[in-house]
Amino acid sequence: MPLLDVKDLKISFHGRDRVTEAVKGINFSLEDGQTLAVVGESGSGKSVTAMSLTRLLPDPPTCQISGEILLRGQDVLMMPKRDLRSIRGKEIAYIFQEPSTSLNPVFTVGYQIAEAIKLHVPEEKDITGRVIDSLRKVGIRDAEKRYKAYPHEMSGGMQQRVMIAMALACEPKILVADEPTTALDVTIQAQIIDLLKELREKTDMSIILITHNFGIIKGFADQVQVMFRGEVVEHGPTEKVLENPQHPYTKALIACIPRPGTKQRRLTTIDHASLV
């Protein structure tokens, strides 16, 4: 049985005068220790898919979800609401794009990490010790001192490390990283991806990496799934998709990344009209 099995997932948003179909019946599964990359542009439905995994989306009638999301065989969509808390953060944890807006500015980072542990591991005696330990794991030096720091006292890269520490504090089975490096400098980007690689090896967790940039998934994701307008247009092992993309949209997404040294005069852009 796969760790996560998503079957015919459909998500739509119902506004006053129109219905937006964000996800139009997609299927995917994730095994233990595997990394799946979900690649697509803004509006392709990748973040909505990720949020639906723990039902972080608005309730009906605003948002309708159908299909099945099986987490070890148990359907998340059928679960009573109160049980969702035991999944959120404990089974499936998230890191978001913008660390500076995801952290609460009025609490210390240590306090915010401790919050998750208190909720999910109430039997833990030495919470402070565990928080400091989790800060060390993500490569924050002087963890004892940094425990008392406020988010604004840290750089963007450090804040993202805190977000990762928070997500991993309760040892989740699946880490959903929604554009974790988009807001960061290229050098910090590389550090965060390396950190995720290292943590994946140590803990054997599965990762769902959401990104718009094919550049960062090479050498990181086992499988890639390309989303376009709420549908999965291509799916396969990362190396194979990168070397030999089949769908025109995948080809276009790969082609629009600037390649240093080639001196092409213009960058390739995506002609969306031709793809529909």
């Binding site: 803004s42 997404l253 629009c256 960058l267 852009t269």
Partner: peptide, 14 residues
């Protein structure tokens, strides 16, 4: 911006 949109803006600037 997304990489695909980035390419459009870079081309426009050129």
């Amino acid at each position: 911006l997304d990489v695909s949109v980035q390419a459009q803006i870079v081309n426009l600037l050129q």
